[in-house]
Design a protein around this nucleic acid. Structure first.
Lengths: 245, 245
DNA sequence: CGGTTGGTTGATTCAGCTCAACATGCGTGG
DNA sequence: CCACGCATGTTGAGCTGAATCAACCAACCG
């Protein structure tokens, strides 16, 4: 029964965390040289995920965390009834799969929005290693905690902001994260559709589209499909804080 | 300058996790007898928090996690502008303060909604101990992961449910948690105001009140102020799944 | 080139917000 | 113990921001 191999492409060659250009953003932050080698030893494989494919799906057994090396993902919940919710977008250096630790099963889908590569981090090995390397333990805890804080921020957005404020907050968050990665803070290409943005922000796609148009009319953005230029970041910031109400 | 002591009541006597009736809900789940004693050694103090007082506030230095022993808390974000968001309600056996790990500062307020007691868990000692006790490490990670999953559930609620569905989901979640603690699943006393429920659910207090009245009219609930009796839990469940749309 | 997917825009509707009046319960202090 | 005042909760009327429904357009792709 060797005829059907799992449709997963694993790269056999190693990519050491110690020489990765994302090491200052990713799991190994604050880890010493010597210990980095031990982390390298467990993060032994990469996996390629073509655009549109799932890295994992809700209900699948949880075995590993994944660090985004290149590309872009969304995570989404789909409840039995048609309800659907994008819970986050992940870019290079960010971790996927933390939801699976609690129940040993993934509780959401992670889908690549462009051709992507992830580093596979076998979870039990990470637990073992973080018992020996306190810097690793500490940073892993920080990553989980920040995910909780991020989620609280989204709850604030969903619970108390209006449509344009939500979009403004979303764009500022994206540009902030791109800036951290050395990209321009003013020019960005959206990897997701209006519908996916809408799902994340608790809005319908038409509302997202109208908000983009409004920002364009007001000279805050230049919008050419998914190519966005931020002309007036202060105006976006002013929207997120509650100035013109 | 010993005149102003901090307004914090610490109980000098020890309450051992090993003999706590919450040990099957709280941090020590799945920990062996011998190891439980070591946990007891670091969870050395309790703290009483009178109704209305904060256990911690956003911006304060983070040093400890807290396990609710008795009582009831809310956590809330208050951004500079008036925006306010209740991000959760915590009852006996649940952990408070996970948000602080990421930045070494608390990022939200935790306020007691009734006179409460918490066990103080010095965080660095917990880190140290969880490096030695893998069962403790594993369970702590599960707790954090479940918090992330819970937050995703709230995002789904805020992003895609309508007012009555949100309230139904909220009530089912509360009764579920009360049942786990051995309380009646049908009779509950709300510890929070309509406004706090509304903030959590992304609704105005009037809308919450109307939804309660509607459920009462439909015979789903009996509502006497904060005393709620669930007469028809199936109807609540049907609302949360998307049946009558 | 035709089909499909994603995006924009307009017209209309409606769920939930706002504003307002009133009711009720509770703690405090006389 | 009662009266007062304040917190909290309920309900109504009208408004409004976003959803819905629908038409159309642009880009992409086999």
């Amino acid at each position: 029964m060797q005829t059907t191999l799992p449709p997963v492409r694993l790269e056999p060659f190693k990519v050491a965390c110690s020489s990765c250009n994302l090491r200052e953003l990713c799991l190994p932050v604050g880890i010493g040289e010597a210990q980095m080698e031990r982390l390298d030893a467990i993060v032994a494989t990469r996996r390629s995920v073509p655009r549109g494919d799932a890295l994992f799906r809700s209900g699948e057994a949880f075995t590993s965390l994944y660090a985004v090396r290149t590309g872009f993902f969304k995570t989404c919940l789909s409840s039995e009834d048609g309800r659907d919710q994008v819970t986050g977008f992940q870019m290079a250096g960010e971790l996927l799969g933390l939801d699976g630790i609690g129940t040993d099963r993934h509780t959401c889908d992670a889908v690549a929005l462009e051709d992507s590569q992830v580093c596979v981090i076998p979870y039990h090995q990470l637990e073992d290693l973080s018992r020996e390397i306190s810097d690793l333990q500490r940073h892993f805890h920080k990553i989980m905690s920040r995910e909780i804080v991020r989620d609280h921020g989204v709850m604030l957005l969903l619970g108390s902001m209006r449509a344009e404020e939500r979009l403004a907050a979303f764009l500022l968050n994206l540009t902030q994260r791109l800036r951290t990665r050395g990209f321009s803070a003013s020019s960005l290409v959206l990897r997701m559709t209006r519908e996916e943005i809408g799902s994340y922000l608790g809005l319908k796609l038409e509302t997202v589209s109208r908000a983009f148009s409004k920002f364009q009319d007001e000279g805050i953005l230049d919008v050419k499909q998914r190519q966005i230029t931020v002309l007036n970041p202060e105006a976006l910031q002013a929207l997120v804080n509650g100035s013109p109400c």
